[in-house]
């Protein structure tokens, strides 16, 4: 009987077969990281640059923001800012005040125009600013409820808790009931002052802050509030105001000055 030694070495893979078996058998399931392990890491290539940037921002924080936050300006602001609900809209209006103010001064100083025309123009600019500001504040307020609903929907989608709006509503209903009992009259008869004093309603952000430990969602919801104001004030000041309000302001300005010879055309 011929006995042949079975070397079984036909295939290149066999050379590593022992280790292959160890790695490929079903008992061995290496942890799978694709997708999770691929979360972008900080680039090593840019490390020197990011290090420099990091040092620069640390220097800035020490020499600029720390000082600014403790400056006389901050002291003045701190007293006022406490009363505010939101800063973004106030800053947008202030920015517009500065820009319109500078523009008006510039017009009034312009020696190329005669005095009447200068006045007309300055009034137009002022009116444009006032109308735009009033418009954006009105739009902002009127969209409050709708936006709050969108925020609620957004929070539901992020938390996966479909009962969130119900919970918020339940809290608010109780608050309204309590306020009504305190004042002894229905909600519709509340004055603005009474509402502010006695009625503290919960919105989505406050609910999340109070009840859910989700810092990430808090940031997103705060951003959602900022986004609304940015869009409204941005659209009015940068789009509606120059395109639509200006012609209107021109008409009013012209009638106010009531000049015989029309110094300007309206759009």
């Amino acid at each position: 009987m011929n006995v042949t030694l079975q070397t079984n070495n036909f295939n290149g893979y066999n050379r590593n077969l022992k280790s292959n078996i160890r790695n490929n058998n079903m008992n061995h399931t290496p942890s799978f990281t694709a997708g999770i392990g691929d979360v972008p890491q900080k680039s090593k290539l840019l490390k020197p640059a990011t290090n420099v940037f990091d040092k620069f921002t640390t220097w800035l924080s020490k020499n600029y923001t720390d000082k600014l936050y403790t400056s006389w300006l901050a002291k003045k602001l701190a007293g006022q800012a406490e009363k505010l609900d939101s800063v973004v809209d106030v800053m947008a209006i202030l920015g517009s005040v500065v820009i319109s103010g500078m523009y008006m001064t510039q017009t009034l100083r312009n020696k190329d125009l005669d005095e009447d025309r200068r006045k007309t123009l300055a009034i137009n600019q002022g009116l444009t600013f006032i109308m735009a500001t009033l418009g954006s504040v009105t739009i902002d307020k009127s969209l409050d409820k709708w936006w709050e609903k969108q925020t609620e929907k957004y929070a539901v989608s992020r938390t996966g808790d479909a009962k969130l709006p119900e919970r918020i509503k339940a809290i608010n209903d109780k608050a309204i009931k309590r306020a009504e009992e305190e004042l002894g009259k229905p909600l519709s008869e509340f004055t603005k002052k009474e509402k502010k004093k006695h009625l503290k309603l919960t919105n989505t952000l406050k609910y999340v802050e109070d009840n859910l430990e989700n810092a990430d969602l808090e940031v997103k919801l705060k951003g959602m509030g900022v986004l609304k104001k940015l869009i409204i004030f941005g659209t009015v000041y940068r789009f509606l105001s120059p395109v639509a309000v200006t012609p209107l302001a021109n008409m009013i300005g012209n009638s106010l000055v009531a000049k015989k010879d029309k110094p300007e055309k309206t759009a």
């Binding site: 973004v88 947008a92 940031v219 997103k220 951003g223 900022v226 940015l230 941005g234 659209t235 789009f239």
Partner: peptide, 24 residues
């Protein structure tokens, strides 16, 4: 939307100018 919201909260000025960029 998450990303925009985070930008709005953390870098408000940049978000403001982004809105302006789209409009302008």
């Amino acid at each position: 939307l998450d990303k925009i919201n985070k930008l709005c909260e953390r870098h408000t000025v940049i978000a403001q100018n982004l809105v302006a960029l789209v409009l302008a």
